[in-house]
């Protein structure tokens, strides 16, 4: 398969499977100021999603973050087990393996501008945690 063909297929998939909100877990499963991982069947196929919970950080809207659990530097699924913090004003998680930082908001790696983790929309519905994917 050529690169162009591959690109086409993904485009097709995007069109065919539109994203939908689904339940990931409950508030009880979360660990405050840290992360957990969830297994989701998304429109793009199965995904391991790291979910971070920063209660009371900057008003209700900014408490939850969902990004790729997969660490592109080590190729291991470990992002949810990193330390959460903030650098230059933005909340980040540090990969537990080689310690690169990823912005929680958009998955951008601070050490390497070419690397960005996938992110998903996430929010509370009552006591449940819902992700769009």
């Amino acid at each position: 398969m050529t690169a162009t063909a591959l690109k086409k297929e993904i485009d097709m998939a995007d069109v065919q499977n539109s994203k939908a909100w689904q339940k990931a877990c409950t508030k009880d499963d979360l660990v405050a100021f840290s992360g957990i991982a969830a297994w989701l069947e998304t429109a793009d196929g199965p995904a391991q999603v790291a979910i971070f919970y920063l209660p009371g950080l900057r008003g209700q809207g900014d408490e939850l973050y969902a990004l790729d659990h997969h660490d592109p530097f080590s190729n291991a699924n470990v992002i949810a087990r990193g330390i959460v913090g903030d650098l230059k004003g933005a909340p980040v998680v540090a990969s537990p393996i080689y310690k690169q930082h990823f912005r929680l908001e958009d998955g951008q790696c601070l050490e390497d501008e070419n690397v960005k983790l996938r992110t998903w929309k996430i929010e509370f519905k009552g006591d449940e945690v819902w992700v769009e994917g």
Binding site: S34, V84, P96, I97
Partner: peptide, 22 residues
């Protein structure tokens, strides 16, 4: 303990050394 867990390196969090494949 709940107050300390978010502070720990992953090795301390899970009380085991993480290897390169997680």
């Amino acid at each position: 303990d709940a107050a300390h867990i978010p502070l720990q390196d992953t090795n301390d969090t899970f009380m085991a050394n993480m290897q390169k494949n997680g």
